[in-house]
């Protein structure tokens, strides 16, 4: 999932200050799972903003709505029926959601209410961790299902570095050393020999070679 966290309320208030009729737009997918931009969080943020406006004597209408996915056009299109009521959208989607809504409504400013963080896992209630950088060429097989590009602070493909102590990362002792995890897992599978070879430099063109990436699949197109 894509994880995100809500921006500080003051930053949001500064960004929406010029507008009088605002739609707080939630997203029911990833950012709902990580409790940042779902229906509940959208209602809470809209309510907080209305209260702050009232205290400060500002005349502003803030209404809220949550759609299933801001990043997929077919969920965004129905907003067309209500969009003329607003002079700005405060999106609680991830960065992709914000831009997809903005693309669909070129005349309406779409303001981000969240800081998009990473692709990750829900480890526990209120606890999410990054586990994939989307490199475009998955190497998890070679590393026993632990991604060193994401989980090693130095992105080593031929680790571990000299700072691994007691299974902890030197950069943050709260973080397990990814290379210790890799060695432990591969040992369990009897596959430690996968680490004897030198992994060559990563082909980063698959991640950032020519600007924003796209996937075009003719078999999926009508």
């Amino acid at each position: 999932m894509i994880t995100a966290e809500q921006k500080p309320i003051d930053e949001i208030r500064n960004m929406i200050a010029p507008y009088k009729r605002i739609l707080a737009l939630g997203c029911g997918s990833c950012v709902a799972e990580c409790a940042a931009g779902g229906e509940k969080e959208t209602a809470m943020l809209a309510s907080a903003l209305r209260m702050a406006a009232k205290i400060n004597g500002e005349e502003v209408i803030i209404e809220e709505k949550t759609i299933d996915r801001q990043c997929v056009n077919e969920f965004v299109i129905p907003l067309d029926d209500i969009m003329e009521k607003y002079d700005a959208v405060l999106s609680l989607g991830c960065g992709a959601g914000v831009q997809a809504v903005a693309d669909m409504f070129p005349e309406v400013p779409v303001i981000p209410a969240l800081n998009t963080e990473f692709m990750g896992e829900t480890k526990d209630q209120g606890y999410w961790v990054e586990s994939c950088i989307g490199c475009g060429d998955c190497m998890l097989y070679y590393f026993g299902g632990v991604c060193p590009l994401t989980r090693c602070a130095k992105h080593l493909l031929n680790g571990p570095c000299g700072g691994s102590m007691d299974g902890r990362c030197e950069v943050d002792p709260d973080v397990p050393c990814a290379w210790q995890l890799i060695i432990d897992r591969l040992s369990r599978f009897g596959a430690l020999d996968r680490l004897e070879k030198i992994y060559p430099p990563k082909d980063w063109s698959k991640k950032e070679g020519c600007g924003p990436r796209k996937i075009v699949r003719e078999d999926q197109q009508k």
Binding site: A153, K154, H155, L156, L157, N158, G159, C161, E170, V171, I198, Y199, P200, P201, K202, W204
Partner: peptide, 20 residues
């Protein structure tokens, strides 16, 4: 790691690792 020094906001490059 860049987080240890006086440029904590720097982007770490690590395009190659030391062995590469």
């Amino acid at each position: 790691h860049q987080s240890f020094g006086n440029q904590g906001q720097a982007k770490g490059v690590f395009d190659l690792d030391s062995i590469q």
